[in-house]
Design a protein around this nucleic acid. Structure first.
Length: 677
RNA sequence: GGCGAGAUAGCUCAGUUGGUCAGAGCGCAUGAUUCAUAAUCAUGAGGUCGGGGGUUCGGAUCCCCCUCUCGCUACCA
């Protein structure tokens, strides 16, 4: 393996429109922090950078929604996130933000360099423009009537009612959400990064030179590369972001995915004047910790940007994790289905390490994993308390009891003593190789094995019995147990930094370096110990039950009327309603539309005629169950070509809050063709 | 539908190039023990390694087909 002079570790930039939850921690920040703490203990030169990603359309929407400025939104969440990370103990060397002036400057320069080198393609396209507000409209800022379902408040990119993906020019009666006016199409010029140009380079770099990357990362990259890369726009018409730093680009900003990864660079710049060493010297090892949703940006797009710029190094590895679920369900910010870091820190005072431990022990390294409060409790009580805390505690208590709190001498160690002491360095080596290969779960397990070894040693030696007959030998046994404890204090530091500090305090010793782990004489005979308190305490059922109750309440809220239901719609007149020609019809036949997941092709007798309707209901109904069923049909909906089939009309369905579809069924015997009023 | 990643003991996961690879931790059962937060230590039960074919002397491990889960993507009420 290549030896590097220094390390640059980045953790994915949290998007500043919400707080941090356990999914973020398990996937990115806990492993990254463990990795960095390990490197620092080894005496490596390492910079650990992160920061808030504060641009992009969702933040402007949230701001508009709450009636505040985008800056106020990002100030709020940046503050929350930064504070939570600090309280939790993530050891960033700097937690930056992309609204920082240094970032504006860095991103602008980066863009200009690429621009001047002629790395961009310019394209002119037509986009909607709000003349009153004097700005181009992002898709989300345009609403209009959905061409599919006639919902009046569909967004330019998607109809929230029918779920259709739309483009703004499809909307009927489009209007701007800013002024309410009808937007006009206007020409706009944008710059594109021709990713296709870098495809041969990326192919070699990833597919040939980086075969050791995790299979999920490698596979996804291969999928993108095999699918062919296309130029991607790096600018947008928006008033929130970094202005495009060239003439004639007024009112345009850098697209958020272009500016965000540069945030790693600006953070480093703000951190140290030697930033170029970390970004441009091939002897720097750069590692990006991210979640699987970010793979393409960190493995394809950002490297292409860096390559285009020309003077930067590329990441050595991109250890992307999968996702963490909570109690069997996907974590969801909008449904409030999460364990929020700031709430955890309030509910579990001084238990940062417990969460670090649990999230590391069941991190979604190879596949999605599930966080459950029961598992959290079990890991705390059965592993941290029973194995680690207990071993340290009994070593210290016995020493205080029999030797007045002073480290007894190791006299004439026998084979077993030497064997046990010799194990320490072996475990250290295992932990090292696992950490260096980003196998944090395994590394943690090996770490705990040292405490297990200690417990077994004490059980085998029985110092509490030995003391009756042989005080000198008892002293030797406790010496060994204390040496193990002292070594543990360093070995656990990357995983459990606060606990490590406590243990060092109880042992009344200095921090030891990683390279010293394995030294069987860390503590000298006669060294005085401080009073020992418990490293961990049991977590009782009622505490866990409170958390479960909290989740149950959230679930109930989500299921209950208010949360899941769509907001009431605007009034309509009877005349407007009566334009709908809704008829009672009967399904004659149904078959799946080939090569689709959701579509069924239905033949309907509407009483007036027999017609074909394509309906996206295949996820909820089997074709064979449908013939003979009476349904309500919107008969005068404009025909639409779907997957090459002309669909004439729409079957009316009720959609439950969870998305489940239910037919609106007329009473048995209703005559076909009857109108619905 | 296309692509990617998964599917191994109750739970969470290891299993490098096919031949002690059927494993670990937790849980469970039994026994030992009492220094310790009813903690610890020992022993044990448990799996046709998602299903079905194939190649091979031999497959969790390679090939083909299928099923299920997650993600990306396409189509859609």
């Amino acid at each position: 393996m290549k030896k590097f002079k220094r390390h640059l570790v980045t953790a994915a930039l949290p998007y500043a429109n919400g707080p941090i939850h356990i999914g973020h921690l398990a996937g990115v920040y806990v492993p990254a922090d463990i990795y960095c703490r390990y490197l620092r203990l080894k005496g490596e030169d390492v910079k650990f950078v992160c920061g808030s990603d504060e641009h992009g359309v969702p933040i402007t929407i949230k701001a508009r929604h709450e009636g505040v400025t985008p800056q106020q939104i990002v100030d709020k969440y940046h503050g929350m996130i930064k504070d939570a990370f600090e309280r939790f103990g993530i050891s960033f060397d700097i937690y930056h933000r992309t609204t920082n002036p240094i970032h504006y400057q860095t991103a602008s320069e980066f863009f200009k360099t690429l621009f001047n080198k002629g790395e961009f393609i310019e394209k002119t396209t037509q986009q909607f423009f709000d003349e009153e507000a004097g700005q181009f409209l992002a898709d989300r800022y345009i609403i209009g009537t959905c061409p599919r379902c006639n919902f009046e408040n569909a967004y330019g990119d998607q109809c929230e009612k029918c779920g259709s993906s739309l483009s703004p020019d499809e909307l009927i009666n489009p209007r701007s959400t800013i002024s309410g006016n009808k937007p006009v199409l206007k020409e706009t010029r944008h710059w594109y990064l021709p990713l296709d140009k870098y495809e041969p380079f990326l192919r070699k770099w990833i597919l040939e030179d980086n075969k050791h990357w995790k299979s999920n990362v490698y596979g996804q990259c291969k999928s993108w590369l095999d699918g062919g890369l296309e130029p991607r726009a790096v600018t947008r018409d928006l008033d929130w972001g970094i202005p495009v730093p060239i003439e004639g680009a007024e009112g345009k900003v850098l697209y958020v995915w272009f500016d965000a990864p540069i945030g790693y660079i600006s953070a480093t710049k703000d951190l140290t004047k030697d930033w170029q060493l970390y970004w441009k010297d091939p002897e720097t090892k750069m590692v990006h910790f991210i979640g699987k949703d970010n793979i393409v940006f960190h493995c394809i797009i950002f490297p292409a940007m860096l390559k285009a710029e020309g003077s930067y190094i590329l990441p050595d590895n991109v250890p992307a994790n999968e996702f963490l679920n909570l109690e069997g369900e996907k974590i969801s910010t909008s449904r409030n289905w999460a364990v929020w870091l700031h709430e955890y820190l309030d509910d579990f005072k001084d238990k940062q390490d417990v969460l670090r431990y649990v999230l590391c022990a069941s991190a979604p390294e190879t596949k999605d994993n599930d966080f459950t409060w029961k598992d959290f409790q079990a890991r705390n009580n059965n592993e941290l308390v029973a194995i680690l805390g207990n071993f340290v505690h009994r070593s210290l208590v016995l020493t205080h009891k029999y030797f007045d709190g002073r480290v007894p001498a190791l006299i004439n160690p026998d084979d077993y003593d030497n064997e046990v002491l010799g194990e320490i360095i072996k475990i250290r080596k295992l932990v090292e190789s696992n950490l260096e290969n980003f196998r944090f779960r395994e590394a943690l397990k090996e770490t705990m094995n040292l405490a297990r070894l200690g417990n077994k040693y004490l059980a085998d030696r029985e110092p509490w019995i030995l003391i009756r007959t042989d005080k000198e030998k008892t002293g030797s046994v406790l010496n060994v147990a204390l040496q193990i404890s002292a070594n543990l204090s360093a070995l656990i530091e990357p995983f459990l930094p606060i606990t490590s500090g406590k243990l060092i305090g109880y042992l009344n010793m200095d921090h030891i370096k990683w390279s010293e782990i394995g030294n069987p004489k860390v503590l000298e005979a006669g060294h005085e110990l401080r009073e020992s308190k418990l490293l961990f305490e049991k977590i009782e059922d009622n505490v866990i039950q409170e958390q479960l109750d909290k989740l149950a309440r959230i679930k109930k809220m989500n299921e209950s009327a208010a949360a899941g239901l769509e907001p009431a719609k605007n009034q309509v007149t009877y005349d407007e309603f009566s334009t709908m020609d809704i008829r009672i019809g009967k399904i004659l036949s149904a078959e799946k539309v080939p090569k689709t997941d959701k579509l069924l092709k239905l033949t309907i007798d509407t009483g007036l005629d027999t017609r074909t309707i394509v309906s996206g209901i295949a996820e909820y109904f089997k074709p064979e169950d449908l013939p003979g069923k009476l349904v309500c049909v919107l008969a005068n909906l404009a025909p639409r070509n779907i997957k090459g089939i002309e669909s004439r009309g729409m079957i009316l369905l009720a959609e439950e809050p969870d998305g489940k579809l239910v037919f609106i069924v007329p009473e048995e015997g209703t005559k076909l063709g009857s109108t619905v009023k």
